[in-house]
């Protein structure tokens, strides 16, 4: 059985649940590990078994985003960018230091397109499908979210962009078990294999790469021989 990961969960002090509570619930639901990714204003270092130290960077312009990425990259194992604004989305997918672009579709303007998909693939930035949109929204808003997800999935398939499924949970009531995540992903046309890939293989690859990079890393293909 694959190991499942939820890479986008908010905890105390930003939201109501402590990291250890979220971990307990995640374990019960069948996750191997979860990443605590508070918005950059609330960031604090979290540690513990099965908890990945992460951040979701919020920035109002590309320059601020770059500054924040430089500041937090050495301190975290996983780095998300709070997407939505077209300029931020673009700056995020063009920066190889970013692991995941979170919810690129939430802004007013069209958030994601073939140009961004291509640079996301080139820079190995994964695109997130935050399933809380399907859980939380109703009516027209949910219809729009589903259409956006379908469009993003089509682009991701065409340009071979990595995708991740996350809960974007603000409490443990927002978390869903892996099988439910797979069922929700099926609503916008993701196959079961793709969904399992997005919940387990892609997160494993991102985390392993990052942990490797934090020790003696120079660049891809170069290593220090002692």
């Amino acid at each position: 059985m694959p190991k499942y990961y939820d890479l986008h969960v908010h905890s105390l002090p930003e939201c109501v649940d402590s990291p250890s509570r979220l971990k307990l619930v995640a374990k019960r639901y069948g996750y191997a590990e979860i990443a605590i990714t508070n918005h950059s204003g609330y960031w604090n270092e979290v540690a513990g078994d099965s908890i990945i130290n992460g951040i979701e960077i919020v920035a109002s312009n590309p320059a601020e985003l770059r500054k924040n990425i430089e500041k937090y990259r050495p301190r975290v194992d996983i780095l998300l960018v709070h997407g939505g604004d077209p300029k931020i989305n673009r700056a995020a997918v063009e920066n190889a230091c970013v692991d995941i672009l979170a919810h690129p579709e939430i802004g007013k303007a069209d958030g994601f397109n073939h140009v961004l998909a291509k640079s996301a693939a080139d820079n190995d930035v994964a695109i997130e499908f935050n399933l809380d949109a399907l859980i939380r929204l109703r009516g027209g808003a949910r219809v729009r979210a589903l259409s956006d997800f379908r469009r993003n999935l089509k682009l991701a398939r065409k340009f071979d962009v990595s995708v991740v499924l996350t809960s974007n949970a603000k409490s443990h009531y927002d978390m869903r078990a892996p099988r439910e995540m797979i069922a929700l992903a099926g609503l916008f046309g993701m196959t079961e294999e793709e969904a399992i890939q997005a919940l387990s293989m892609v997160p494993v690859r991102i985390i392993e790469q990052n942990r490797k990079k934090r020790q003696d890393y120079i660049r891809d293909g170069v290593e220090v021989v002692r």
Partner: peptide, 22 residues
């Protein structure tokens, strides 16, 4: 049941969840 309402507003849940480990 938290004394401070700010985090409740941010996450739409009226209870704060912690564990004995905290």
């Amino acid at each position: 049941i938290p004394d401070d309402d700010d985090i409740v507003k941010r996450s739409n849940v009226n209870l704060v969840g912690v564990t004995v480990f905290d």
